[in-house]
């Protein structure tokens, strides 16, 4: 484990949604200035972790700390002020379909700053240049591919120069080229600007290239954490199953069911 300063800390966090426990006594530390991957099987509560950090949901117990801020105690204006400090890339970009790429990126600037339009224009073009889509400024999101949409959304999330970037499943459904572009982009942004990046994903191979630090969440808990190399050598059977993509293991292939033979016989009897 490295001993850098913690940017985000989840302590003893329990979340229940609709009567189901999503996370139970989760402890998670995310170091500042690095790329941390939060991984885990589908439905393990990865996105819930993201929503805790952004203050979209509050834990039923425990603390969520971002820097010196207790996010779980924020509301109203304080929460809005906090959110200007973080950038979030949602799963499919979530660009506003009735605005052009330019206007999408300009929206947070127009909303939260009093900058003159000429300056906004310059800032927006710079952000779009960063994601390589300055040429698409006048296009609508529907005229771009899914990967490009996400890059524009990354530029929008970066518009107010956040100190923390959160990426929710940034690689899902991308073709190999777009995937390579996204990987490099996340790394470059992190290194060039020295911000803290958190990537929610279940793509193990990509994480090995990208992350400084990994956290695997499974079964409502933090299962393992460490560098990608450390995790690949782990003895924990679940970590091994996850990292190597084995079809069967602690996470069973079969949904819990009665004995197959008994089930088939019962079906025959019914006929």
């Amino acid at each position: 484990m490295t001993h850098t300063e913690a940017a985000i800390e989840l302590r003893n966090v329990t979340v229940e949604l609709g009567g189901r426990t999503i996370l139970e006594n989760l402890d998670l530390v995310i170091p500042a200035g690095k790329v941390t991957a939060v991984m885990g099987p589908s439905g393990a509560g990865k996105t819930t972790v993201l929503r805790l950090i952004t203050g979209q949901i509050r834990p039923d117990s425990g603390e969520v700390r971002v820097g010196d801020t207790r996010v779980d105690q924020l509301s109203g204006k304080a929460l809005n002020r906090f959110r200007r400090e973080i950038g979030v890339l949602l799963q499919n970009g979530a660009l506003f379909t009735d605005l052009t790429c330019f206007d999408n990126v300009a929206l947070p600037l127009r909303e939260h700053t009093e900058l003159p339009e000429t300056l906004i224009r310059r800032l927006v073009l710079l952000k779009l240049q960063m994601v390589g889509l300055r040429g698409a400024a006048g296009l609508y999101p529907r005229e771009l591919s899914g990967g490009m949409n996400r890059r524009v959304a990354t530029a929008r999330a970066m518009a107010l120069d956040p100190s923390i970037m959160l990426y929710d499943e940034p690689f899902a459904g991308l073709d190999p080229i777009s995937l390579g572009v996204s990987l490099r982009l996340i790394r470059d942004i992190n290194h060039a600007l020295g911000i803290t990046s958190i990537v929610i994903t279940h793509d193990v191979d990509e994480v090995a290239h990208l992350a400084d630090q990994c956290a695997i969440i499974a079964d409502r808990q933090l299962m393992a954490s460490g560098s990608p190399a450390e995790l690949a050598d782990s003895d924990n059977p679940l970590v091994r199953q996850f990292m190597q993509g084995l079809p069967d293991g602690p996470v069973p292939f079969h949904y819990p069911a009665d004995d197959l033979a008994a089930d088939l016989l019962a079906a025959e009897k019914q006929q």
Partner: peptide
């Protein structure tokens, strides 16, 4: 398509 969430996260 999470556009409402995106607004919320942009403090709008």
């Amino acid at each position: 398509t999470e556009q409402l969430d995106a607004l919320d996260l942009m403090a709008i």
